[in-house]
Design a protein around this nucleic acid. Structure first.
Lengths: 249, 249
DNA sequence: CCTATATTGTGTAAAATTTACACATTATAC
DNA sequence: GTATAATGTGTAAATTTTACACAATATAGG
């Protein structure tokens, strides 16, 4: 099934003789192209969105793909992903985390290309966000179709990852403006998790965590009684971060 | 900081002209060596162990490394990891999951080598387990020192991943014999999580989940009253898998 | 056979958390 | 000024989690 490669650690006979020239060894290894792909999520009109670009492969004409790039020679994976992110959005200090690596031998029509998938969260209305390329678009996460490569599978994986993660860590705030109302926060959770939550219990939950700072301001331009605005107290959270423990499955 | 690569998706001018020859494009990408590394965990004498091998690089003489191998030309990442696992342990049907990818440009002294880390769990006393290579050893997970490459960091990451994962999914049973006592199960959780648990509450918890099958047998060769033996009901678990939901951070 | 030892197996009460649920308040829109 | 649409708030019941002690049962060793 696999071509045998004599130098491969598992096939190399272990003679007890140590290898003095690792570069020579690595030279015998097969090489693949390496990219990063970013699932850049945003939240708009109470919907989770992901930033996509038109594929420029003829084969995937009219199809959408994630923002990605090759990893340069001496570049860290995280740095490559971050570079994609800031080049494409103009934003700095954006939430970014590795999700998983996709390496199917047939995933790219041009030959083997391994991609490390990243998840990124940003506020679509951030003043710093600049999307120049008019081939870039925010797509609703439900209703992902016509995707190039295996990018549908990557987005699905990143979305599941996000659903899980926002329940355990305060990631969601990265999708909101710095100041937000509890309604916005609840809409965010409801949209991402695909559930309906009780308003009073939701509030009680977040207030009891005691990480919300009342900024003493109110919503504006809403056609009803404006809600209070809050900030998330990241410093306090980092200090009090509870060690998560509960057997439950 | 990074060498510019004209063909890189992010640098390529988007002219609207579609690429008809993706292979030609991929050929211009820089290539890296690709490996998988398996953190193969076992449980012995109430301690979490990981299977390591002596590094065969002179540079890492006397140091330990994870079991890994290069990924072959047309091989899936999962398959490569599984191949390492079965070649090294003789076992089939072993729990295996991708954890994350390590790709620091300097992580391998022989040049750039990206590695996809996998976590695997098996029962050290399984009759099928055959470890031929006498350079292979089970190491206690605390007390990991003298590791080759960045394998200490990889093990740390896999260990944290495991700690989290066994609380949400019934992975731990993969480390135990098919039939086990509740004491063994509790020892497992205590060892992996590094906590002390109340015996009665632990039992109540697992009984209330209702996934344990009383096999009607008892421990043997223990110098005290033998405990009942149980199996984990994986079928029932798969059917009833509850969708995990709880905002908590 | 008896005794010492070590571990199994079991229940309950208190505390904490989660859930379900309704109405008065406050702003805008017309 | 009135209709509308959302905010803001409390409590009781149910559930889950925690803390905690003692009798039963096997082996080990004299």
């Amino acid at each position: 099934m696999n071509k045998l490669i004599a130098s491969s650690p598992a096939n190399r006979k272990r003679t007890g003789v140590l290898i003095n020239d690792p570069a020579k060894l690595v030279n015998t290894y097969p090489k693949v192209a390496l990219t990063v792909d970013c699932a850049i999520f945003g939240f708009e009109e109470d919907k989770l969105k992901v930033l996509l670009i038109r594929s420029d492969l003829a084969e995937f004409k009219e199809k959408w793909s994630l923002l990605g790039d090759i990893v340069c020679d001496t570049e860290e994976l995280d740095s490559a992903a971050y570079r994609v992110l800031s080049q494409r959005t103009g934003m700095e200090d954006v939430f970014l985390e590795q999700v998983r690596t996709f390496g199917g031998p047939q995933r790219h029509p041009g030959g083997r290309v391994i991609t490390v998938a990243y998840c990124s969260l940003l506020n679509i209305y951030h003043h710093q966000l600049k999307i120049h390329d008019n081939e870039l678009h925010w797509h609703s996460v439900d209703n992902m179709t016509d995707m190039a490569f295996d990018h549908k599978a990557i987005i699905d994986e990143c979305y599941r990852w996000l659903q899980k993660r926002i329940q355990e860590h305060p990631l969601g705030f990265n999708l909101l403006p710095e100041k937000f109302s509890l309604r916005e926060l609840q809409n965010l959770y409801e949209a991402i998790l695909g559930v309906k939550l009780d308003r009073r219990n939701f509030r009680k939950k977040f207030f009891s965590m005691d990480f919300l700072i009342d900024v003493g301001e109110f919503e504006e331009d809403v056609p009803h009684r404006p809600g209070k605005l809050y900030k998330f107290n990241f410093e306090k959270y980092e200090k009090n971060k509870r060690k998560w423990f509960a057997i439950d499955f």
